[in-house]
Design a protein around this nucleic acid. Structure first.
Lengths: 202, 202
DNA sequence: TTTTATTGATCAGCCGTTCAATAAAAAATA
DNA sequence: TATTTTTTATTGAACGGCTGATCAATAAAA
Protein backbone atom coordinates (compact mmCIF):
# COMPACT_ATOMS: atom_id res chain seq x y z
CA UNK A 1 0.00 0.00 0.00
CA UNK A 2 2.66 2.52 -0.89
CA UNK A 3 1.47 6.07 -0.92
CA UNK A 4 3.59 8.45 -2.91
CA UNK A 5 5.82 11.11 -1.43
CA UNK A 6 6.76 9.06 1.59
CA UNK A 7 10.45 9.88 1.37
CA UNK A 8 10.51 13.17 3.32
CA UNK A 9 8.08 11.77 5.89
CA UNK A 10 10.11 8.63 6.46
CA UNK A 11 13.36 10.57 6.59
CA UNK A 12 11.98 12.77 9.31
CA UNK A 13 10.54 9.83 11.22
CA UNK A 14 13.82 7.97 11.03
CA UNK A 15 15.79 10.99 12.19
CA UNK A 16 13.46 11.47 15.14
CA UNK A 17 13.73 7.79 15.94
CA UNK A 18 17.52 8.01 15.76
CA UNK A 19 17.54 10.90 18.23
CA UNK A 20 15.25 8.97 20.54
CA UNK A 21 17.49 5.93 20.29
CA UNK A 22 20.60 7.99 21.04
CA UNK A 23 18.89 9.38 24.09
CA UNK A 24 17.77 5.97 25.28
CA UNK A 25 21.21 4.46 24.82
CA UNK A 26 23.18 7.52 25.87
CA UNK A 27 25.60 7.04 22.99
CA UNK A 28 25.97 6.42 19.30
CA UNK A 29 26.18 2.72 20.03
CA UNK A 30 22.75 2.11 18.57
CA UNK A 31 21.54 -0.27 15.91
CA UNK A 32 19.79 0.44 12.66
CA UNK A 33 17.26 -2.17 13.73
CA UNK A 34 16.45 -0.24 16.90
CA UNK A 35 16.04 3.01 15.02
CA UNK A 36 13.89 1.43 12.33
CA UNK A 37 11.64 -0.31 14.81
CA UNK A 38 11.18 2.93 16.75
CA UNK A 39 10.10 4.53 13.49
CA UNK A 40 7.81 1.59 12.82
CA UNK A 41 9.57 0.44 9.67
CA UNK A 42 12.01 -2.28 8.69
CA UNK A 43 15.79 -2.11 8.79
CA UNK A 44 15.84 -2.28 5.03
CA UNK A 45 13.98 0.98 4.67
CA UNK A 46 16.46 2.90 6.75
CA UNK A 47 19.20 1.79 4.42
CA UNK A 48 17.04 2.54 1.43
CA UNK A 49 16.64 6.19 2.40
CA UNK A 50 19.98 6.90 4.06
CA UNK A 51 22.36 4.46 2.44
CA UNK A 52 24.26 3.77 5.63
CA UNK A 53 24.05 4.14 9.35
CA UNK A 54 26.69 6.85 9.28
CA UNK A 55 24.72 9.04 6.96
CA UNK A 56 21.62 8.67 9.10
CA UNK A 57 23.61 9.79 12.13
CA UNK A 58 25.02 12.81 10.33
CA UNK A 59 21.55 13.70 9.05
CA UNK A 60 20.29 13.63 12.64
CA UNK A 61 23.04 15.93 13.76
CA UNK A 62 22.35 18.31 10.93
CA UNK A 63 18.69 18.28 11.88
CA UNK A 64 19.43 19.37 15.45
CA UNK A 65 21.73 22.15 14.28
CA UNK A 66 19.13 23.40 11.83
CA UNK A 67 16.49 23.45 14.54
CA UNK A 68 18.79 25.50 16.73
CA UNK A 69 19.65 27.95 13.97
CA UNK A 70 15.98 28.44 13.22
CA UNK A 71 15.28 29.13 16.89
CA UNK A 72 18.14 31.59 17.05
CA UNK A 73 16.90 33.51 14.01
CA UNK A 74 13.44 33.80 15.51
CA UNK A 75 14.78 35.14 18.77
CA UNK A 76 17.17 37.54 17.05
CA UNK A 77 14.46 39.02 14.86
CA UNK A 78 12.59 40.22 17.93
CA UNK A 79 15.62 41.96 19.39
CA UNK A 80 16.14 45.69 18.82
CA UNK A 81 19.24 46.72 20.76
CA UNK A 82 22.64 44.96 20.95
CA UNK A 83 21.91 44.11 24.56
CA UNK A 84 18.60 42.53 23.56
CA UNK A 85 20.38 40.58 20.86
CA UNK A 86 22.75 39.15 23.44
CA UNK A 87 19.78 37.98 25.46
CA UNK A 88 18.27 36.52 22.33
CA UNK A 89 21.35 34.39 21.79
CA UNK A 90 21.26 33.24 25.39
CA UNK A 91 17.58 32.45 25.07
CA UNK A 92 18.10 30.40 21.95
CA UNK A 93 21.06 28.53 23.43
CA UNK A 94 19.42 27.80 26.75
CA UNK A 95 15.83 27.81 25.58
CA UNK A 96 13.23 25.17 26.27
CA UNK A 97 13.73 23.58 22.87
CA UNK A 98 17.38 22.87 23.65
CA UNK A 99 16.57 21.55 27.08
CA UNK A 100 14.44 18.65 25.97
CA UNK A 101 16.09 15.52 27.29
CA UNK A 102 16.48 13.91 23.89
CA UNK A 103 18.03 17.02 22.41
CA UNK A 104 20.45 17.39 25.29
CA UNK A 105 21.73 13.86 25.08
CA UNK A 106 22.06 13.91 21.32
CA UNK A 107 23.83 17.24 21.31
CA UNK A 108 26.31 15.97 23.85
CA UNK A 109 26.85 12.72 22.00
CA UNK A 110 27.54 14.61 18.79
CA UNK A 111 29.90 16.89 20.63
CA UNK A 112 31.97 13.90 21.57
CA UNK A 113 31.51 12.21 18.22
CA UNK A 114 33.07 15.20 16.53
CA UNK A 115 36.39 14.03 17.93
CA UNK A 116 36.31 11.09 15.57
CA UNK A 117 34.18 12.25 12.66
CA UNK A 118 35.36 14.93 10.28
CA UNK A 119 31.83 15.62 9.12
CA UNK A 120 30.58 16.04 12.68
CA UNK A 121 33.47 18.33 13.51
CA UNK A 122 32.79 20.55 10.54
CA UNK A 123 29.11 20.80 11.33
CA UNK A 124 29.80 21.70 14.92
CA UNK A 125 32.45 24.25 14.08
CA UNK A 126 29.94 26.06 11.90
CA UNK A 127 27.66 26.39 14.91
CA UNK A 128 30.45 27.46 17.25
CA UNK A 129 31.79 30.05 14.84
CA UNK A 130 28.38 31.50 14.13
CA UNK A 131 27.63 31.80 17.84
CA UNK A 132 30.95 33.49 18.49
CA UNK A 133 30.56 35.89 15.57
CA UNK A 134 27.10 36.91 16.71
CA UNK A 135 28.25 37.47 20.26
CA UNK A 136 31.25 39.55 19.22
CA UNK A 137 29.16 41.59 16.83
CA UNK A 138 26.71 42.57 19.53
CA UNK A 139 29.28 42.98 22.27
CA UNK A 140 31.52 45.38 20.40
CA UNK A 141 29.25 48.43 20.70
CA UNK A 142 28.98 47.70 24.42
CA UNK A 143 32.49 46.73 25.48
CA UNK A 144 34.75 47.61 22.55
CA UNK A 145 37.87 45.54 22.08
CA UNK A 146 37.13 43.17 24.92
CA UNK A 147 34.30 41.73 22.85
CA UNK A 148 36.20 38.65 21.69
CA UNK A 149 37.36 37.62 25.14
CA UNK A 150 33.98 38.22 26.75
CA UNK A 151 32.33 36.25 23.97
CA UNK A 152 34.58 33.32 24.90
CA UNK A 153 33.46 33.65 28.48
CA UNK A 154 29.79 33.74 27.57
CA UNK A 155 30.10 30.86 25.16
CA UNK A 156 32.00 28.76 27.68
CA UNK A 157 29.43 29.46 30.37
CA UNK A 158 26.56 28.52 28.09
CA UNK A 159 28.22 25.26 27.11
CA UNK A 160 29.09 24.55 30.72
CA UNK A 161 25.56 25.16 31.96
CA UNK A 162 24.24 22.99 29.21
CA UNK A 163 26.55 20.09 29.94
CA UNK A 164 25.96 20.35 33.67
CA UNK A 165 22.26 20.38 33.25
CA UNK A 166 22.49 17.30 31.10
CA UNK A 167 23.93 15.37 33.99
CA UNK A 168 22.34 16.64 37.14
CA UNK A 169 18.92 16.39 38.48
CA UNK A 170 18.78 20.21 38.82
CA UNK A 171 15.29 20.63 37.47
CA UNK A 172 15.49 24.41 37.42
CA UNK A 173 18.94 24.71 36.00
CA UNK A 174 16.98 25.87 33.02
CA UNK A 175 16.11 29.24 34.57
CA UNK A 176 19.10 29.53 36.85
CA UNK A 177 21.37 29.14 33.85
CA UNK A 178 19.79 32.12 32.18
CA UNK A 179 20.36 34.24 35.23
CA UNK A 180 24.01 33.21 35.52
CA UNK A 181 24.82 34.19 31.96
CA UNK A 182 22.78 37.39 31.98
CA UNK A 183 24.44 38.39 35.21
CA UNK A 184 27.86 37.75 33.71
CA UNK A 185 27.01 39.85 30.67
CA UNK A 186 25.74 42.73 32.79
CA UNK A 187 28.79 42.57 34.98
CA UNK A 188 31.17 42.72 32.06
CA UNK A 189 29.20 45.45 30.34
CA UNK A 190 29.00 47.49 33.51
CA UNK A 191 32.68 47.18 34.15
CA UNK A 192 33.61 48.12 30.59
CA UNK A 193 31.39 51.20 30.65
CA UNK A 194 32.68 52.27 34.05
CA UNK A 195 36.21 51.98 32.70
CA UNK A 196 35.24 54.07 29.69
CA UNK A 197 33.78 56.77 31.98
CA UNK A 198 36.92 57.21 34.06
CA UNK A 199 39.76 56.14 31.80
CA UNK A 200 42.44 56.09 34.48
CA UNK A 201 42.06 52.37 35.23
CA UNK A 202 43.42 49.53 33.11
CA UNK B 1 58.51 -16.44 31.86
CA UNK B 2 56.04 -15.13 34.37
CA UNK B 3 57.56 -12.80 36.88
CA UNK B 4 55.59 -12.40 40.06
CA UNK B 5 53.67 -9.29 41.02
CA UNK B 6 52.63 -8.49 37.48
CA UNK B 7 49.03 -7.73 38.38
CA UNK B 8 49.37 -4.06 39.38
CA UNK B 9 51.71 -3.41 36.47
CA UNK B 10 49.42 -5.00 33.92
CA UNK B 11 46.37 -3.26 35.36
CA UNK B 12 48.03 0.10 34.99
CA UNK B 13 49.25 -0.70 31.48
CA UNK B 14 45.80 -1.84 30.43
CA UNK B 15 44.16 1.25 31.87
CA UNK B 16 46.61 3.49 30.04
CA UNK B 17 46.00 1.54 26.87
CA UNK B 18 42.25 1.88 27.32
CA UNK B 19 42.56 5.65 27.68
CA UNK B 20 44.74 5.77 24.59
CA UNK B 21 42.21 3.68 22.68
CA UNK B 22 39.34 5.90 23.78
CA UNK B 23 41.25 8.92 22.58
CA UNK B 24 42.08 7.32 19.26
CA UNK B 25 38.51 6.23 18.65
CA UNK B 26 36.84 9.25 20.20
CA UNK B 27 34.31 7.06 21.98
CA UNK B 28 33.78 4.00 24.10
CA UNK B 29 33.27 2.01 20.94
CA UNK B 30 36.57 0.25 21.38
CA UNK B 31 37.49 -3.40 21.46
CA UNK B 32 39.21 -5.38 24.15
CA UNK B 33 41.50 -6.65 21.42
CA UNK B 34 42.60 -3.13 20.56
CA UNK B 35 43.24 -2.25 24.18
CA UNK B 36 45.15 -5.46 24.83
CA UNK B 37 47.29 -5.08 21.75
CA UNK B 38 48.12 -1.49 22.72
CA UNK B 39 49.24 -2.79 26.08
CA UNK B 40 51.21 -5.53 24.32
CA UNK B 41 49.26 -8.43 25.80
CA UNK B 42 46.51 -10.78 24.66
CA UNK B 43 42.76 -10.27 24.92
CA UNK B 44 42.64 -13.08 27.40
CA UNK B 45 44.81 -11.25 29.89
CA UNK B 46 42.59 -8.20 29.92
CA UNK B 47 39.68 -10.41 30.89
CA UNK B 48 41.84 -12.21 33.39
CA UNK B 49 42.59 -9.03 35.32
CA UNK B 50 39.39 -7.07 34.83
CA UNK B 51 36.73 -9.70 34.33
CA UNK B 52 34.88 -7.77 31.68
CA UNK B 53 35.22 -4.86 29.33
CA UNK B 54 32.85 -2.82 31.44
CA UNK B 55 34.95 -3.10 34.54
CA UNK B 56 38.05 -2.10 32.63
CA UNK B 57 36.26 1.00 31.41
CA UNK B 58 35.08 1.91 34.90
CA UNK B 59 38.57 1.34 36.27
CA UNK B 60 39.93 3.74 33.68
CA UNK B 61 37.40 6.35 34.66
CA UNK B 62 38.23 5.94 38.31
CA UNK B 63 41.90 6.29 37.47
CA UNK B 64 41.35 9.66 35.80
CA UNK B 65 39.27 10.93 38.70
CA UNK B 66 41.89 9.82 41.20
CA UNK B 67 44.59 11.59 39.24
CA UNK B 68 42.52 14.77 39.29
CA UNK B 69 41.81 14.55 43.00
CA UNK B 70 45.49 14.08 43.73
CA UNK B 71 46.33 17.13 41.66
CA UNK B 72 43.67 19.18 43.42
CA UNK B 73 44.98 18.23 46.87
CA UNK B 74 48.48 19.22 45.89
CA UNK B 75 47.34 22.61 44.66
CA UNK B 76 45.13 23.23 47.66
CA UNK B 77 47.89 22.47 50.14
CA UNK B 78 49.93 25.34 48.81
CA UNK B 79 47.09 27.86 49.17
CA UNK B 80 46.85 30.07 52.24
CA UNK B 81 43.92 32.43 51.77
CA UNK B 82 40.40 31.62 50.48
CA UNK B 83 41.17 33.55 47.32
CA UNK B 84 44.29 31.48 46.78
CA UNK B 85 42.29 28.34 47.34
CA UNK B 86 39.89 29.38 44.60
CA UNK B 87 42.82 29.78 42.23
CA UNK B 88 44.10 26.41 43.33
CA UNK B 89 40.84 24.79 42.28
CA UNK B 90 40.94 26.56 38.95
CA UNK B 91 44.54 25.50 38.47
CA UNK B 92 43.77 21.88 39.19
CA UNK B 93 40.71 21.89 36.93
CA UNK B 94 42.38 23.61 34.02
CA UNK B 95 45.94 22.49 34.70
CA UNK B 96 48.31 20.96 32.22
CA UNK B 97 47.58 17.46 33.43
CA UNK B 98 43.91 17.82 32.56
CA UNK B 99 44.71 19.29 29.19
CA UNK B 100 46.55 16.33 27.78
CA UNK B 101 44.66 15.25 24.67
CA UNK B 102 44.03 11.72 25.87
CA UNK B 103 42.73 12.92 29.21
CA UNK B 104 40.43 15.45 27.58
CA UNK B 105 38.85 12.97 25.23
CA UNK B 106 38.42 10.31 27.89
CA UNK B 107 36.93 12.75 30.35
CA UNK B 108 34.43 13.90 27.79
CA UNK B 109 33.56 10.38 26.77
CA UNK B 110 32.94 9.44 30.39
CA UNK B 111 30.84 12.52 30.82
CA UNK B 112 28.53 11.30 28.11
CA UNK B 113 28.75 7.70 29.20
CA UNK B 114 27.40 8.70 32.60
CA UNK B 115 24.04 9.13 30.90
CA UNK B 116 23.79 5.40 30.44
CA UNK B 117 25.94 3.95 33.22
CA UNK B 118 24.93 4.19 36.85
CA UNK B 119 28.46 3.56 38.00
CA UNK B 120 29.85 6.29 35.78
CA UNK B 121 27.19 8.71 36.96
CA UNK B 122 27.97 8.05 40.60
CA UNK B 123 31.69 8.48 40.08
CA UNK B 124 31.18 11.73 38.24
CA UNK B 125 28.74 13.11 40.76
CA UNK B 126 31.32 12.62 43.49
CA UNK B 127 33.70 14.80 41.53
CA UNK B 128 31.08 17.44 40.78
CA UNK B 129 29.88 17.64 44.35
CA UNK B 130 33.37 17.87 45.78
CA UNK B 131 34.26 20.66 43.38
CA UNK B 132 31.11 22.55 44.27
CA UNK B 133 31.59 22.10 48.01
CA UNK B 134 35.16 23.35 47.81
CA UNK B 135 34.16 26.38 45.79
CA UNK B 136 31.31 27.31 48.12
CA UNK B 137 33.49 26.85 51.18
CA UNK B 138 36.12 29.27 49.91
CA UNK B 139 33.66 31.71 48.39
CA UNK B 140 31.58 32.21 51.49
CA UNK B 141 34.09 34.36 53.39
CA UNK B 142 34.43 36.50 50.27
CA UNK B 143 30.88 36.86 48.97
CA UNK B 144 28.59 35.55 51.71
CA UNK B 145 25.29 34.05 50.68
CA UNK B 146 25.94 34.38 46.95
CA UNK B 147 28.56 31.67 47.27
CA UNK B 148 26.39 28.86 45.93
CA UNK B 149 25.26 30.70 42.83
CA UNK B 150 28.72 32.00 42.02
CA UNK B 151 30.12 28.52 42.50
CA UNK B 152 27.69 27.33 39.84
CA UNK B 153 28.93 30.04 37.52
CA UNK B 154 32.56 29.17 38.10
CA UNK B 155 31.93 25.46 37.71
CA UNK B 156 29.97 25.96 34.52
CA UNK B 157 32.66 28.17 33.07
CA UNK B 158 35.37 25.64 33.88
CA UNK B 159 33.43 22.83 32.27
CA UNK B 160 32.63 24.99 29.27
CA UNK B 161 36.24 26.02 28.73
CA UNK B 162 37.28 22.43 29.04
CA UNK B 163 34.79 21.14 26.53
CA UNK B 164 35.51 23.95 24.11
CA UNK B 165 39.20 23.36 24.29
CA UNK B 166 38.63 19.71 23.59
CA UNK B 167 37.17 20.56 20.22
CA UNK B 168 38.99 23.54 18.86
CA UNK B 169 42.48 23.99 17.74
CA UNK B 170 42.88 26.92 20.16
CA UNK B 171 46.36 26.03 21.32
CA UNK B 172 46.41 28.66 24.04
CA UNK B 173 42.94 28.09 25.37
CA UNK B 174 44.92 26.59 28.18
CA UNK B 175 46.08 29.95 29.51
CA UNK B 176 43.20 32.04 28.24
CA UNK B 177 40.80 29.80 30.12
CA UNK B 178 42.58 30.53 33.37
CA UNK B 179 42.25 34.22 32.79
CA UNK B 180 38.55 34.00 31.97
CA UNK B 181 37.71 32.21 35.19
CA UNK B 182 40.00 34.27 37.38
CA UNK B 183 38.53 37.41 35.90
CA UNK B 184 35.03 36.16 36.63
CA UNK B 185 35.94 35.39 40.21
CA UNK B 186 37.51 38.79 40.75
CA UNK B 187 34.54 40.48 39.19
CA UNK B 188 32.08 38.69 41.46
CA UNK B 189 34.20 39.20 44.54
CA UNK B 190 34.66 42.85 43.78
CA UNK B 191 31.00 43.38 43.23
CA UNK B 192 30.03 41.57 46.42
CA UNK B 193 32.48 43.58 48.47
CA UNK B 194 31.39 46.84 46.90
CA UNK B 195 27.80 45.96 47.74
CA UNK B 196 28.82 45.21 51.30
CA UNK B 197 30.56 48.59 51.58
CA UNK B 198 27.55 50.62 50.49
CA UNK B 199 24.55 48.48 51.38
CA UNK B 200 21.96 50.56 49.55
CA UNK B 201 22.09 48.48 46.37
CA UNK B 202 20.45 45.09 45.87
C1' DT C 1 4.54 -1.33 -17.61
C1' DT C 2 7.29 1.46 -14.93
C1' DT C 3 8.16 3.65 -10.64
C1' DT C 4 7.98 4.04 -5.67
C1' DA C 5 7.57 1.90 -1.18
C1' DT C 6 8.57 -1.71 1.76
C1' DT C 7 9.83 -6.05 3.70
C1' DG C 8 12.61 -9.74 5.76
C1' DA C 9 15.78 -13.31 4.93
C1' DT C 10 20.62 -13.73 4.30
C1' DC C 11 25.62 -13.00 4.61
C1' DA C 12 30.06 -11.99 6.12
C1' DG C 13 32.42 -10.12 9.87
C1' DC C 14 33.46 -8.66 14.32
C1' DC C 15 33.05 -8.75 19.48
C1' DG C 16 32.97 -10.10 24.33
C1' DT C 17 33.64 -13.96 26.75
C1' DT C 18 35.08 -18.65 27.93
C1' DC C 19 38.39 -22.18 28.33
C1' DA C 20 41.90 -25.53 27.79
C1' DA C 21 46.77 -25.42 27.48
C1' DT C 22 51.56 -23.85 28.47
C1' DA C 23 55.29 -22.24 31.12
C1' DA C 24 57.88 -20.54 34.76
C1' DA C 25 58.41 -19.10 39.52
C1' DA C 26 57.43 -20.31 44.42
C1' DA C 27 56.30 -23.50 47.92
C1' DA C 28 56.17 -27.92 49.74
C1' DT C 29 57.98 -32.29 50.25
C1' DA C 30 61.30 -35.94 50.46
C1' DT D 1 69.55 -30.38 48.08
C1' DA D 2 66.58 -32.45 44.70
C1' DT D 3 61.93 -33.33 43.64
C1' DT D 4 57.23 -32.65 43.09
C1' DT D 5 53.24 -29.67 43.66
C1' DT D 6 50.97 -25.43 43.63
C1' DT D 7 50.37 -20.88 42.21
C1' DT D 8 50.73 -17.09 38.99
C1' DA D 9 51.09 -15.34 34.29
C1' DT D 10 49.83 -15.68 29.74
C1' DT D 11 48.18 -17.16 25.34
C1' DG D 12 45.07 -17.94 21.40
C1' DA D 13 41.56 -20.82 19.53
C1' DA D 14 36.67 -21.37 19.76
C1' DC D 15 31.69 -20.05 20.38
C1' DG D 16 27.43 -17.81 20.29
C1' DG D 17 25.46 -13.58 19.34
C1' DC D 18 24.73 -9.37 17.19
C1' DT D 19 25.42 -5.86 13.36
C1' DG D 20 25.53 -3.26 9.06
C1' DA D 21 24.72 -4.09 4.60
C1' DT D 22 22.81 -6.48 0.47
C1' DC D 23 19.23 -8.17 -2.30
C1' DA D 24 15.48 -10.61 -4.24
C1' DA D 25 10.60 -10.38 -3.75
C1' DT D 26 6.06 -8.10 -3.21
C1' DA D 27 2.60 -4.74 -3.83
C1' DA D 28 0.32 -0.70 -4.97
C1' DA D 29 0.17 3.70 -7.35
C1' DA D 30 1.26 6.20 -11.75
Amino acid sequence: MPKLGMEPIRRKELISAAIAAIHARGSLDITIRDIASRAGVSQGLAHHYFGSKDRLIVASMRYLLTQFSRQASTELKRARTPRQRLSAIVNASLGEEQFQPEVITSWLVFYVHSHASIEARQLLSIYTRRLHTNLVHDLRPLVGNDAAVIAQGIGAMIDGIYIRHSLGRHTNYFKEGHRLVEDYIDLKIGFAQAAAAKPNDT
